[in-house]
């Protein structure tokens, strides 16, 4: 296994690249602030992610720099930003996969908080309320003493597959329709509808789902550009889900 050790352990002092970060700065809370690009230089380190890089910049070069990291492990979805123009999770981006000139900007569509920080939470809440993204069960008293209802394991796995969404907003930022229509629910919304449609506990019918997404703010607003599918950091099967949902909704609409 000496080979493993050689390749996995970043031993020894190698010369590191000098990276230049070009960051779109703007603080809406500051009347004197105007949107502008600002550059920072930083020596690369082994295994450096954009989380490590931005933390170093804030601590040692510019304490006013705003960004959002929570888990720094790719599971909370807080740190999505435009990395060289493409939406993605900054914490999951290794600098070694980028050139020496790195451009960072906040996600479009969402309300800007400052610099790289945007309010995805507010947008997601609105989407969830509109699509009612929860299991709609029959009105009944829940008996906590009873064992849980059984679910077919394969079906449970299919639901979990879609449930892995972290609501990072990358799909919305990469969406042509979302740039033009404020009320578009995005791939994140359609994926959620697909997820609850699969759930046998959810009593909603196709007609009910048609009411939710059977128009231009839902499945029929999608232009099939599928930027969402390309950028999803969880590699959710968004293309399949949107196509499936659209076919379903067309059949309801034609009834």
């Amino acid at each position: 296994m000496s080979e493993t050790q050689k390749t996995a352990a970043p031993g020894g002092q190698t010369r590191h690249r000098m990276l230049t970060f070009h960051i779109l700065r703007y603080n809406p809370q500051d009347p004197d602030s105007k949107p502008h690009m600002q550059s920072y230089q930083l020596e690369e380190a082994e295994g450096m992610t954009l989380f490590l890089a931005l933390s170093e910049i804030r601590e040692h070069q510019d304490p006013t720099l705003q960004y959002d990291f929570v888990c720094r492990a790719g599971i909370c979805g807080s740190c999505s930003m435009l990395i060289n123009g493409r939406p993605g999770l900054a914490c999951r981006t290794l600098t070694k996969d980028l050139g020496t000139e790195i451009t960072l900007a906040p996600l479009p569509v969402f309300e800007l908080i400052g610099d790289l920080s945007v309010n995805t939470g507010k947008w997601m809440r609105g989407m969830s309320e509109r699509l009612e993204t929860w299991v709609h069960t029959k009105e009944q008293e829940l008996n906590l003493d009873k064992a849980e209802e059984r679910m077919d394991p394969d079906l449970a796995e299919s639901i979990y597959e879609l449930d892995r969404c972290v609501e990072c907003g990358s799909c919305v930022a990469a969406c042509g329709t979302a740039q033009m229509r404020n009320d578009f629910v995005g791939a994140v919304g359609m994926n959620k509808v697909a997820r609850f449609k699969l759930d046998p506990r959810d009593t909603r019918t196709d007609d009910d789902f048609y009411e939710l997404v059977g128009d231009d703010s839902g499945v029929f607003g999608c232009m099939s550009l599928l930027g969402c599918h390309d950028v999803c950091p969880k590699e959710l099967p968004l293309q399949t889900q949107i196509a499936f949902l659209r076919r379903k909704m067309i059949s309801v609409g034609l009834k």
Binding site: E148, E149, R150, M151, P153, A156, E157, I159, Y160, D199
Partner: peptide, 12 residues
């Protein structure tokens, strides 16, 4: 033991 629930019910 496969996996999953959708956070309520699961597998094996």
């Amino acid at each position: 033991r496969q996996v999953i629930i959708n956070s309520q019910k699961v597998t094996i």
